[in-house]
């Protein structure tokens, strides 16, 4: 009885989830002109400092354990803001890159493809990093690394700038 009801609810929820995902997919790309303005700046140096193992060890060695836990929690909370920001920005850059993948200019198309690949990679990294940071807030002794994240974002933004530069002359020529 219970399992029958459970399976039925799962079936209905799964269908609802599929419809919701597909509807979301259609509406995601409808208003792309405002997408670029939604990009938020990230201070990569500050982020790198927050997740630096050396900084954490320094604080651990120079603060009382309760103080260290408080400071560490604050620092990790700040780090999550950066990661969420990178997550959102990479999503925007994926959409901008996808829109330029079919460009007639091969240089634009190649840069867009590369941008999409890297933005996807960064988004996936951010998805994997977030639970680690939250876990680290609860267990300060837990060691984890997200050194690739600032590097990835750095590379990504450079590629986006290149793509933008490549597209401007093409538009002017039109």
């Amino acid at each position: 009885m219970n399992i029958v009801l459970f399976v039925m609810i799962v079936g209905v929820l799964a269908l609802a989830c599929i419809v919701w995902s597909i509807r979301g997919r259609n509406s995601d790309t409808r208003n792309p002109n405002g997408l670029a303005s939604q990009l938020q700046p990230i201070d990569i140096c500050a982020f790198r400092n927050l997740i630096d193992d050396g900084e954490r060890e320094y604080l651990r060695n120079h603060l009382f354990p309760p103080d260290f836990r408080g400071v560490h929690r604050e620092r990790m909370l700040a780090a999550t803001e950066y990661v969420w920001c990178a997550f959102r920005n990479s999503g925007i850059l994926i959409q901008l890159g996808e829109a330029s993948r079919n460009a007639t200019d091969p240089a634009v198309a190649a840069t867009a493809a590369s941008l999409v690949e890297n933005a996807t990679r960064l988004r996936l990294d951010a998805m994997q990093t977030l639970p680690k940071i939250y876990l680290s807030m609860v267990f300060p002794g837990l060691t984890w690394t997200a050194q690739d994240l600032p590097e990835g974002f750095d590379k990504l933004t450079r590629q986006a700038v290149i793509l933008g530069c490549l597209q401007v002359p093409a538009q002017v020529a039109l």
């Binding site: 670029a36 990009l39 700046p41 933004t157 933008g164 530069c165 401007v168």
Partner: peptide, 9 residues
């Protein structure tokens, strides 16, 4: 868009 991206880096 470029200005936004420049700001990011």
């Amino acid at each position: 868009w470029n200005q936004d991206l420049q700001r990011m880096v």
